[in-house]
Design a protein around this nucleic acid. Sequence first.
RNA 1: GUGGGCGUAGCUCAGUUGGUUAGAGCGCCAGGUUGUGGUCCUGGAGGCCGGGGGUUCGAGACCCCUCGUCCACCCCA
Length: 420
Amino acid sequence: MADFKTSPGTRDILSPDSARWRAFQGVFESTVEAAGYDYIIPPMFEDLDVFLRLGEATDVVTKEMYDFHDKGGRHIALRPEQTASVCRAFVEHRPTTPWKVWYSGPNFRYEKPQQGRYRQFDQVGIEALGVDDAFLDAEVIALAAKFYSALGLRKIELSINSLGDSGDRDKYAKKLSEYFAKHESKLTAESKATLLRNPLRVLDSKREPDQEIIIGAPAIRETISNESREHFEAVLSALDALKISYKINDRLVRGLDYYRRTTFEFVSTALEAAHTAIGGGGRYDGLVEALGGPPTAGIGFALGLDRTLLACDAESVFAAPLKEVDVFVVDTVDGTHAHELCHQIRTHGFSADRAYDLRSIKAQMKAADRSGARIALIIGSNEVENESVMLRPMGSGEQYVVPRQDILNEIAKYTIKTNI
RNA sequence: GUGGGCGUAGCUCAGUUGGUUAGAGCGCCAGGUUGUGGUCCUGGAGGCCGGGGGUUCGAGACCCCUCGUCCACCCCA
């Protein structure tokens, strides 16, 4: 038994899962780059204060932050998400708007790990700053939907809501507070506690006794301003124009305090655990200002790699790509031929692998099979003597002799493309 | 953070009411096929039964603690 294990909530992603991750990120990249989003790589840690803007009352900030003092005395936190970092970057660099960026990478939250919930977890996402246009809201949502569909996911549901502007939100929180206070005796103890911290979040309770009260709660729609209402309706009709189906959910409030107006969430109906929410986002029009920048509109979404991959598993789509290599060199003489031939093949833009330690031809062929090689090149004493190579297309059951100097041209017949 | 289930070979799991040298399948290695993989057959390697303490003549099985994992709550991706 090994002495060291990964820390709770973290793990190694090995092949073939690692290849699947990379493919996942690749699909995301091409989806959003096709819509004009540029890649941004924010730091993994920064000043704690940046993340406090996520909401003083949220668990993400109060309980789950990985924070520490560095040797220079700075109060640092590992990023729990990337939206705040992107907004900080916007304030710091003042790019021209619209500023549309995408990211991919790990975030950190100190939570009790479960399946689909890790302390180091990867998200991909996009953020678009400086535009108030409802078409942008619809574009962002449409890109997420397009991405899911590109992965092959079908059992995805989109919930959408509007939280109104910041004034609306405060008004609504107060109204909800009063409503729940009236029915406090019927609420669960957990919800009573939540009520004090953040009344909106009581709507998210899944506890049975709370449901009756929640159903009767006032909807935010009754509170929001005309401007917010018009914006929301424009977003909905822009989604209709793209034939993107959605469900308006009055109770959708989401966990981070910075959300304003449009909010949305994607749920996989193929998943059964509690972690069916595989992605979400919304507008955060006040966030840039809160970080010291000019009043700037913003919208984006993030989705979790693990959970989305779990949903892919549940729907049996987006399998890990097969391992493959152009050529596998089998050398039963002394290994020097495999050594030099592999180098030559690689230099000419093909991929090549080989076996080591001069194992039996049978063992080397087995390794060739496992490597996913298109062809095996076999070099034994006969081939060395004739300055030739035995070429065996894997899967064909046939093989033929190729003069050593013709080998690169022959390999080219079997490879679809050359990688550098 | 609270409550519950589960930790046995690299992986998935069996292991009767505690009883000698702890098993299977897959994977890995070797041989059958002295120059040939993907099928088949045979053999082999690999375990302080998560860790610590206790009960007992005797513990993988029972008790306590601890760590890990999974589930629910919480929260969220």
